[in-house]
């Protein structure tokens, strides 16, 4: 069985986000970039499935410029078997990403695709669902537990109402949530080994995904500052105020 894991290069979780003064984006100059944290969990899950003997190969794929090879190498150092860079000079929106990932999944005959539930930059949370729809295959989003039994995956999902369990037949797309696992630390010798693992480069144009009308994203702004509100004198006034606002 083959598992395909999609990863995205994003501004590191620890970096304080600053909107650029010209409003055309956020500051990425000299900023630390990392694998999207949810994608790291996806890699870890794929590796655990392979290590449990239920999969033979873990392939990581990222869509972007050559700079994303750095994140692919990290995934290889974590233990992925090989990597594919779909070279694209421009940032794609989820629908196109889903189309591209699907092409890769199909050409690789992947049985399972694992993605992060969302990227921490755009916070879209769309790509996995879209890919499953285009593929006509099941989706299991926000996974906090994944059990494979032959060609069936039993997935526990973190939903607002609690923990929902569903079963999906492979091939399927699973998107993972924070509590699924704790990604491993990369061992230093594995960084050296990763340098010798295969990393293939495919041009986005060769995947022939067509052109979807993209959303236009502009006018980046910092969130409005919260101003101080009112002061109340005692608990009675506080409770009255909360009740009046319909909050308790």
């Amino acid at each position: 069985m083959k598992i395909l894991v999609g990863i995205k290069r994003v501004v590191d979780y620890n970096v304080r986000i600053r909107v650029r003064p010209d409003g055309r984006g956020v500051e990425t100059d000299g900023v630390k970039m990392s694998i999207n944290p949810f994608d790291e969990i996806a890699i870890e899950e794929a590796l655990r499935i392979r290590e449990s003997g239920k999969a033979d190969e873990v392939i990581v794929v990222s869509i972007g410029g050559d700079e994303c090879q750095q994140q692919l190498r990290t995934a290889l150092a974590m233990g992925a078997d090989r990597a594919i860079q779909v070279n694209s000079s421009e940032a794609l929106q989820p629908l196109s990403l889903a189309r591209a990932l699907l092409k890769v999944a199909q050409s690789e005959s992947a049985d399972l695709v694992i993605l992060g539930k969302q990227a921490i930059d755009d916070d879209n949370s769309q790509t996995g669902q879209m890919m499953a729809a285009l593929w006509g295959r099941p989706q299991a989003t926000f996974a906090s537990r994944v059990e494979l039994d032959g060609t069936t995956a039993r997935v526990t999902r973190e939903v607002d109402a609690g923990l929902e369990t569903i079963e999906v037949e492979l091939p399927a797309v699973i998107t993972v949530d924070l509590r699924l696992n704790q990604p491993r630390f990369v061992k230093l010798p594995d960084i050296m080994k990763a340098k010798r693992k295969p990393l293939d480069r495919t041009e986005l144009g060769d995947l022939d995904i067509g052109a979807d009308a993209p959303l236009s994203v502009s006018d980046f702004a910092p969130p409005p500052a919260r101003g101080g509100g009112i002061k109340v004198d005692d608990a009675a006034a506080l409770v009255a105020e909360l009740k009046q606002r319909g909050l308790v």
Partner: peptide, 23 residues
């Protein structure tokens, strides 16, 4: 010696524990 990763506050290894190597 590269420091071990994944040790908890009390010095016990966590699930993510990885022993550091020597260079």
């Amino acid at each position: 010696i590269i420091g071990d990763m994944g040790i908890n506050r009390d010095g016990e290894p966590k699930d993510s524990y990885v022993q550091g190597i020597e260079i």
